[in-house]
Nucleic acid binder design. Sequence first.
DNA 1: ACAAAAGTGTTTGGAGTACACCCATGA
DNA 2: TCATGGGTGTACTCCAAACACTTTTGT
Lengths: 237, 237
Amino acid sequence: MTNEMIYNPHVSVDCVVFGFDGSKLKVLLIERTINEQNELYNDKKLPGSIILTDEDLDDAASRVLTELTGLKNIYLSQFRSFGNPKRTDNPRDILWLENTTQLKIGRIVTVAYVALIKIDRKIQFKSEISQANWYDLNEVATMNLAFDHAEIIKKGLEYIRHSLDIEPYLLFELLPRKFTLSQLRSLYDTVHQTNSDVRNFQKKVALWAYVVALDEMEEGVPHRAARLYKFKRTPNP
Amino acid sequence: MTNEMIYNPHVSVDCVVFGFDGSKLKVLLIERTINEQNELYNDKKLPGSIILTDEDLDDAASRVLTELTGLKNIYLSQFRSFGNPKRTDNPRDILWLENTTQLKIGRIVTVAYVALIKIDRKIQFKSEISQANWYDLNEVATMNLAFDHAEIIKKGLEYIRHSLDIEPYLLFELLPRKFTLSQLRSLYDTVHQTNSDVRNFQKKVALWAYVVALDEMEEGVPHRAARLYKFKRTPNP
DNA sequence: ACAAAAGTGTTTGGAGTACACCCATGA
DNA sequence: TCATGGGTGTACTCCAAACACTTTTGT
């Protein structure tokens, strides 16, 4: 049985996983090492891979993310496909693909997914296959990424900005279970590229049924402790 | 040279083209005839086809739409990909595909596009390959369509509802060049599933810089003639 | 004259925005 | 006591929604 019977080398999935560390938005990238005429070349890429022949796209995205980063049960949303025939033109990318898959690779159409996750949960990037790390979005803009992954990240970011406008409760995927209104506001302003007024923001949030105040305060901060809040899923958010 | 060198039989594009006839939203479908053991079987499908090996997805969508319906210069937006392995499981669909493409067909991932067009422009569905017609959306819900095309249409409709919320000027893709406010309101209410108040609607439209009143009236209607309006593209709509 | 659709204003409530000061805490 | 961020209220503007009658035209 050859790899060709298991893998479909014409379609791939890529996952753009965004995280928030309290002040900045980050993307999850994995290390890639290419053996080019015995010179090792290192760069970064999105977690992604070709799909299995009998696998749905959503399933492929979850599987690949788990295999490459160890992350499980992440809510991934398909946002766009990329099929420029030139996207697999770089010889370095082809070399790497053929080495990793042991398949003859031609043109690949990729289906891209986004996810939002809390950086706070003790993430163990456990994978035997690859090494995953968070990178600052600004930093990523200046990095050399594999394939058209820079473009995919850009479109993914547009997509989540957009989704968060429509479904603001998605923000809570990015926050710790208990959070302060400053954290929420800082995140809100980061993704919306705004600078909200503190009072107006508190009023706005007071109208969101899915944000509930707790009887708990922050601890160990070098200033007045802030009230903690939690996110509560509501019947129709 | 085999077809396999020209066509990529693993990825297709499908176009969901919506039109508005003044009162109802319609979808463009093409006829399909399948020769099943010398019994001819007829049904409908979306205009769509597998892509060429060296073709970008957007280009494939335009090309396929033109080839199958004669429509040119239609603005198509990619909205989602469909890759359930079972979507190409129906033997009738496979038979049809292999007959039309002369290729061995396995699993196909399709990238779906939507477009909005005016039914008023004298559309000549000129194609040597297929016959295209408008179908009422309600009607479509009860029809048997090829592959997962019913699902694709449903998602396409959700997508345009959504887009029209954000970019209301897209509505004008669906209207004749000169239109009355009743027509605009009827269309608006159709896509939003609302029932707007006439006066409030006129006020709302008065604020849209891209709708301008003409010095012309409707003619030949059996009641008071309505003023005509046109759509004017603005620098930043 | 009547049927059919066009056109027109006012009021009310909710949401967003602008704006400045005192409070609690740890160092 | 000071530095740091937390927390609070009011006034204004804009937009959305509710609501009913008169006008024009063809038959």
